[in-house]
Nucleic acid binder design. Structure first.
Lengths: 258, 258
DNA sequence: CGATGACTTGACTGCTGTCAACGTGCGTGG
DNA sequence: CCACGCACGTTGACAGCAGTCAAGTCATCG
C-alpha cells in the first residue's frame, strides 16, 4: 500500500460542490425536493476525495454507514464466492446510488471498486433516515429509488434467465446507452470503463464470447468498437437484437415527470 | 369469468385477524414496532378474501395502490415479454411481501398470480408511507425489507449468471427449505405449489431439465420426490451441490435479532 | 372412461464454455 | 528512444451441457 500523500497536502473538501449546483441532481436523490429541504440534504452529504482506478469504496462485510452517489467516473459492485470466483453484480455511472443493499443487515454484501478515477458523494444513512422522516418528498424519493433498483434487478434476471449471448450483450449496450443519454452524454458514443471480462462476468458469459460478439456486431455494421471506445451505428437494430422493449420506453421511464 | 358469488354471502372482513395475532408478524413488516404503533399499522391493513388458484392479485400495468403480504398459500410473480413468452420472477410464501417494485413508477411491472388458494393482507401504500413518516421503526423496517429484496435479487443474479443447472435447482430447493423453516414449517418436507415449468422458467432452465434433475437427485439419494411433494434426505449434500454458503448462514440471516 | 394437462424419458443438436495460441497497446526501465 | 514485459483482447478448435423435439406415462377431473 502506498502512503496517502494527499491527505495533508490539500483539503479537497474545499471544493465547492453542492447538490443544488450538481448537474446530477435531477437523477440522484434530490428529485422533487424544495429549495430549503435541498439545503438540509446537502448539509449531510460529504464529498469524498476521488478514488483512483482499482480503489475500493467498500468491501464485502464492511459495516454499513453510508449510501454513496457516483458524481463522476464509474464503479463496479461484485462479490467473491467461497471458491474465489468473482461475480460482477452491476456497474454504477454518475448519478447512480450504491450500497442500498446494505441496509437490511447493516453490512455490505458486495464490494464496490472504482473502474477509473471516480468521485462519490457520501450520504450517512442515519442522517438520511432521520431527514427522510421529516421531509415527505425525500422519503418518497428514497423508496422510489430502492423500488427502481428492485425493478432493474428483475430486468437483469430476465436477461440472465432467458436471453441468448447476443441478446444479452445487445441489451447491455442499449442499457448503457440509455443511461449515458440520461446523464447528458452521447447515447451513441461512449467508453467502456470495464473490461471484457467484467462485462462477460456480469452478463453470465465467457469473456471470449463477449469479444466474439463485439467482432460480429461490428461486422454486421451495428457498431464500431476500438478497444474501450464504442460507437453505436444502428441502435434500432441493436434494440431488436436485444429482444426487448427498449428504445423509447426507456426514454419515457427516464423522464417520468415531464 | 364466473360471477363473484361470495361477495354478498358473507363478509370475510369479519374474520378476526390482526397483525398482533398473526403468526407471521415476526417476519412481515411489524418487526421492532411497539404495541400502540402496531395497532396503528394494523388499522390500515385490509384482509382480502382468499384468491383461488390461478386468480391474479394484480396484473402488469395495474396502477399501484398497495403492497401485499402473503398470509397463507403462495404466489408467483411474472412478466410476459412482447413475444408472449413468460418469465417467472419469483415465488412468494407466507410472510413475504409483493409489489415493492411498483413504487418507482406507480404501476406494477409484474403480474402476481395465486399458485393455490391464497390469502393476502393489503397494505395501502399512501397510508403506509405517511405512517412510516410518523413511526421511525416502521420506516426503518420498510427500508430494510426493500434492501433485503435487492439482496435477494442479487443472489438470484449470481445463480442465473454462473451456476450450472444442477446448482440452480439445488440452490432453489435449499432456499425454499430455509424459507419454510423460518415460517415454522418443516425444512425437509414440503409441497411445491408451482409446476416444473414455473421452476424451470424461474431458474432459466427447460422444464425437461428440471424433471431430469429431480430424477437424478432422487437416484443419488438426495431427496424423494412424488409429484408435488418433496422430501429432502440429504440437505447437507444438496448445499454442497448448490455451490454456495447456504445452510447455517441462512439460519443466521433469518434471525438477525436473536 | 376418455380427455386433458403435467410430468418423464430419450435422441439429437447447437450454443457457448474451455483451452490455447496469438496480437496489441501501454508502461517501465535500460 | 527503444526493448521488454504484462495485461488485455482476439481468434480458432473442440467439447459438453442443456435446449429442442418427440414419444410415452401418469394423475386428475368432468
Amino acid at each position: 500500500m502506498p502512503t496517502r500523500k494527499f491527505e495533508t497536502v490539500i483539503s479537497l473538501r474545499d471544493i465547492k460542490v453542492a447538490c443544488q449546483e450538481c448537474s446530477l441532481k435531477e437523477i440522484c436523490l434530490p428529485v422533487g425536493i424544495g429549495q430549503e429541504d435541498l439545503d438540509r440534504l446537502d448539509a449531510i452529504i460529504d464529498r469524498k476525495r476521488p478514488l483512483a482506478r482499482g480503489d475500493h469504496l467498500f468491501r464485502v462485510g464492511d459495516g454499513f454507514q453510508s449510501i454513496y452517489a457516483v458524481r463522476s467516473g464509474s464503479l463496479k459492485t461484485y462479490t467473491t464466492s467461497q471458491d474465489g470466483q468473482e461475480q460482477v453484480m452491476g456497474f454504477q455511472l454518475p448519478g447512480e446510488l450504491v450500497g442500498l443493499d446494505a441496509i437490511a443487515e447493516d453490512s455490505h454484501p458486495l464490494a464496490a471498486k472504482a473502474l477509473e478515477t471516480t468521485s462519490v458523494c457520501e450520504i450517512p444513512f442515519t442522517d438520511l433516515e432521520s431527514l427522510s422522516g421529516q421531509i415527505g418528498g425525500l422519503q418518497r424519493q428514497l423508496l422510489r429509488v430502492m423500488s427502481q433498483e428492485i425493478r432493474d434487478d428483475e430486468h437483469n434476471m430476465v436477461i440472465l434467465g432467458q436471453k441468448s449471448a447476443e441478446q444479452r450483450l445487445a441489451a447491455f449496450l442499449i442499457s448503457l446507452s440509455n443511461r449515458f443519454r440520461r446523464r447528458g452524454f452521447s447515447a451513441t458514443q461512449f467508453n467502456l470503463s470495464m473490461s471484457r471480462s467484467d462485462i462477460g462476468n456480469y452478463l453470465g458469459l465467457a469473456l471470449e464470447t463477449v469479444s466474439r460478439l463485439f467482432t460480429r456486431f461490428q461486422n454486421e455494421g451495428l457498431l464500431r468498437v476500438d478497444r474501450k471506445h464504442i460507437e453505436l451505428l444502428d441502435r434500432e437494430k441493436l434494440c431488436t437484437y436485444s429482444g426487448a422493449q427498449c428504445a423509447e420506453d426507456d426514454v419515457l421511464q427516464a423522464e417520468p415527470n415531464n
